[in-house]
Structures are given as C-alpha cells and as structure tokens.
Computed example of a mutant assay.
Amino acid sequence: MITGLPALSHEEQQQAVERIHALMAEGMSSGQAIAQVAQEIRQNYKGAPVPMRFDEEDEEE
C-alpha cells in the first residue's frame, strides 16, 4: 500500500506526542488518542505529503 503522510518537524512530532499523552491522561485509550491526533494532523497539515510504501505481506523469519 502506498500512502502520503505529512512530513512533520521534530517540534511538531513532540507536540503530537504531548497531545496523545494529554488525551490518554483524560481517559482515552492509546489507540483512540493516536487516531484522533493523526486525523487532526491530516486536517490541519499545510505541507506536501511524503510518499510512504507499506508492505502488507507478513514476513516469516
């Protein structure tokens, strides 16, 4: 799967982590907090996306 993800600066990444932690402190599950912050980033991001490729096949070791 190929998807475009926002390229965040270190400071923006730190802000996202702090927002996730704040939501979790309010009682939200980690998955819900991550999903909410990711959605907020997608809605508010003004820069160009960075193409990412995800391999969906499980690799056995």
Score class of each variant (00 low, 15 high):
residue 43 Q to I: 03
residue 54 F to H: 00
residue 31 G to D: 15
residue 4 G to T: 09
residue 14 Q to N: 10
residue 25 A to L: 12
residue 17 V to R: 10
residue 34 I to T: 15
residue 19 R to V: 07
residue 4 G to M: 05
residue 49 P to D: 07
residue 56 E to S: 08
residue 4 G to C: 08
residue 2 I to A: 13
residue 20 I to A: 00
residue 39 Q to C: 09
residue 53 R to N: 08
residue 38 A to R: 02
residue 33 A to L: 05
residue 41 I to S: 01
residue 34 I to D: 09
residue 23 L to W: 01
residue 35 A to Q: 07
residue 52 M to R: 12
residue 31 G to P: 07
residue 21 H to Y: 05
residue 26 E to Y: 05
residue 47 G to A: 01
residue 18 E to L: 12
residue 52 M to V: 15
residue 22 A to Q: 12
residue 9 S to T: 15
residue 49 P to F: 01
residue 54 F to Q: 04
residue 54 F to L: 08
residue 6 P to W: 00
residue 1 M to N: 11
residue 60 E to Y: 00
residue 13 Q to M: 13
residue 31 G to F: 14
residue 16 A to N: 06
residue 23 L to K: 07
residue 49 P to Q: 02
residue 13 Q to H: 10
residue 22 A to L: 11
residue 34 I to Y: 01
residue 24 M to Q: 15
residue 17 V to S: 09
residue 43 Q to D: 15
residue 7 A to G: 11
residue 8 L to N: 04
residue 48 A to T: 12
residue 38 A to E: 07
residue 39 Q to I: 10
residue 39 Q to L: 14
residue 38 A to K: 00
residue 27 G to W: 05
residue 53 R to M: 10
residue 39 Q to F: 07
residue 27 G to T: 13
residue 40 E to F: 01
residue 16 A to W: 04
residue 14 Q to P: 00
residue 61 E to Q: 04
residue 44 N to P: 03
residue 22 A to T: 12
residue 43 Q to C: 05
residue 54 F to S: 00
residue 12 E to G: 04
residue 9 S to K: 00
residue 47 G to F: 00
residue 25 A to V: 09
residue 31 G to E: 15
residue 8 L to S: 00
residue 9 S to V: 03
residue 3 T to S: 14
residue 9 S to I: 04
residue 43 Q to N: 13
residue 5 L to V: 15
residue 4 G to Q: 08
residue 4 G to P: 06
residue 25 A to C: 09
residue 5 L to D: 06
residue 3 T to D: 13
residue 13 Q to C: 14
residue 9 S to W: 02
residue 59 E to A: 08
residue 20 I to H: 02
residue 10 H to K: 13
residue 7 A to Q: 10
residue 51 P to I: 06
residue 27 G to H: 07
residue 21 H to V: 11
residue 14 Q to W: 05
residue 32 Q to A: 15
residue 57 E to K: 06
residue 12 E to T: 10
residue 15 Q to N: 10
residue 52 M to L: 12
residue 58 D to V: 09
residue 7 A to V: 08
residue 2 I to Y: 13
residue 51 P to K: 04
residue 31 G to T: 14
residue 10 H to Q: 14
residue 28 M to Q: 11
residue 33 A to M: 05
residue 14 Q to S: 11
residue 5 L to Q: 10
residue 54 F to W: 03
residue 47 G to I: 02
residue 28 M to C: 12
residue 8 L to M: 09
residue 6 P to E: 01
residue 48 A to S: 11
residue 29 S to G: 14
residue 16 A to V: 05
residue 55 D to Y: 01
